[in-house]
Write a protein that binds this DNA or RNA. Structure first.
Lengths: 132, 132
DNA sequence: CAAGAAGTTGACGTTGACGTCAACCAAAAC
DNA sequence: GTTTTGGTTGACGTCAACGTCAACTTCTTG
């Protein structure tokens, strides 16, 4: 049933990371692959987590913060109180993400405007050049 | 006229960075404050640039990439060719930002859904508890 | 069965972005 | 006039996030 595991190299190819990275993430307890003797076997869970890790990284979150958030997606066998806390953390994180998006929207608007400005500027420069 | 300069400490307080950081940014040519003898005097230009630097950092961009983009906001006395390149880099950067936003939107949707799921889960747990 | 090929565990190196510390200067306050 | 206060320049330290390398084991393939 749980035959859908991957070797480290398959993981590397699939996600575009190095083996070193995967071992490093394991040492930091972000992943916890099974073992076949010595060798690692990455499960569906590991894959889901890695996906989230990489996404977190794209947003510039440090690994430690990402590690804490991973539990959110890991419904597990938590107690009610713990689970409530998990959800609260998730809500806080969601708020952060939304703030991040507003920030981003502003940056996009700024840059877009600046580019238009620059493009007009460039056109003016060309006209001036041609006139000489 | 250009009397609106700030000391390094005023900059620190205003932007929430350390003096070391400002000197470091200067050494990497991201800022170029005036001098009053030895002491640095940060101009409006420096402030504008620092604001952009910090925004770039919030999005996880490396300082070197930020430095290149800063020229865009610095119409300056660039040659046409250089300016064209600057605008091209800016366009590429803008595309990156937009991709980033799509990614972010997805993450927000995911997390939102996950939270709703969790909230329903929690409600179920409570009902089960109350039934016992 | 020898020789890859794929994987493993340390251990050390590297890079970016600063922190920390020592030694110094210069104007201002006591 | 000397002691703060605010600033300066190196030089070295640090931390995260891996890269690199050596020495080893364990299939598997000719």
């Amino acid at each position: 049933m749980t035959k859908d595991t991957m070797t480290i190299r398959q993981m590397c190819d699939t996600f575009g990371v190095t083996a070193r990275t995967l071992r490093f993430y394991e040492s930091k307890e972000l992943l916890s692959p099974l073992r076949d003797g010595q060798r690692r076997l990455f499960t569906r869970r590991d894959r889901a987590r890695l996906k989230l890790i990489l996404r977190g990284k794209r947003f510039g979150f440090p690994l430690e913060e990402i590690r804490q958030l991973l539990d959110l997606y890991d419904v597990g066998d938590q107690q009610q109180t713990q689970y409530r806390e998990t959800i609260d953390r998730a809500r806080a994180h969601l708020a952060e993400l939304r703030a991040h998006r507003e920030d981003l929207d502003e940056a996009i608007a700024d840059l877009d405007q600046q580019i238009n400005w620059g493009a007009r500027m460039l056109a003016t420069m060309k006209r001036k050049d041609a006139a000489e």
